[in-house]
Design a protein around this nucleic acid. Sequence first.
DNA 1: GCGGATAATCTACTCACTAGACTATCCACA
DNA 2: TGTGGATAGTCTAGTGAGTAGATTATCCGC
Lengths: 179, 179
Amino acid sequence: MRTISAAAYDHGVTPRASGRKPPADEPLDLDSDLGWALRVVSGAFRRTATGSVAALPGGPRGYLVLMAAVSGPPRSQLALAQQLTLNKTVMTYLLDDLEAEGLLTRQPDPADRRARQVLVTEKGTHALNEARERLGKAEAQLLADLDPAEQRHLRTLLERVARTAHREEHESEDCRLPE
Amino acid sequence: MRTISAAAYDHGVTPRASGRKPPADEPLDLDSDLGWALRVVSGAFRRTATGSVAALPGGPRGYLVLMAAVSGPPRSQLALAQQLTLNKTVMTYLLDDLEAEGLLTRQPDPADRRARQVLVTEKGTHALNEARERLGKAEAQLLADLDPAEQRHLRTLLERVARTAHREEHESEDCRLPE
DNA sequence: GCGGATAATCTACTCACTAGACTATCCACA
DNA sequence: TGTGGATAGTCTAGTGAGTAGATTATCCGC
């Protein structure tokens, strides 16, 4: 507990564990750490994107709700919550705010009077399109260092990973609602 | 406010805003939304990665602190906090826990007795290497759908975006500490 | 050696999130 | 057709994570 790693004193040189095989292929460097990159990129995106959707009640999550609700058939609150991995309580007050602004309405489902269908209004579609336009600029700024082909490639790869990750989460989800 | 978008009723077909030019190039679809992909991927990674570093005090952040402290010259707590975009108060109790486990020590900086240098111990290096090995498996699982070349490509692109985003944040940061 | 700045710590507060209770409704089955 | 268990949505109360601000010790320019 008192013993200081010799490597820690070895300033300029990348330190290594002494008695143990290091993960030889991966360099001991934050800049090449996938988790770190994800954290930084997500954080940077969140900062700029939050500004882009600040006009929407609920901010980024309000945007997601509108996006989910506007594409595909009308769905219940719970269905949206599951799709977006949002807690159903969160969904309730998120929809409260979006409905208060007139961006969507809750319509009783004729086939199941317990459920409410979430329907985006004209105003909601309009607000969503404006947000998407601003978001596009924020994304462009985030990816400014990549040339167009690289940007497309990054998007495609990310979307593929997201799609399978999302599917896997929902397969093993006959039980609990996360977040 | 009562008016429901006609598009919202139009089930199978991707709805469009009525009176307004849509962002023609971007499809109105969550699956091709960069923010959504980032959210899903980050979330999936966080879930699996948190398990990989559960043995470390502070979890993912403890891991980041060790990674940052072990590579490069010894630094003060504040320097580490800035590098990792962590609040300095968080850094204090994070280091408390890591030090209590004997993974690092706080050494008074001989050149500035206000500051403490963070030094990773042998035990800390060992724990870090074990965590990295488990993390490697978690990452492989997350990226399992991509072939090796695509995995490398995604990592490279993400790291490039992260690097510039991180730099930009620190350029305009003569003022406040975030998170 | 005086005064403003800085590293680290500690305290107290705020706010986001969620578990769980509750109501209305559904559906399977007798 | 009525009964019991499950489900959609809402509401409330409690918890915990994060941070601003005060505090102490030290630095450094003048």
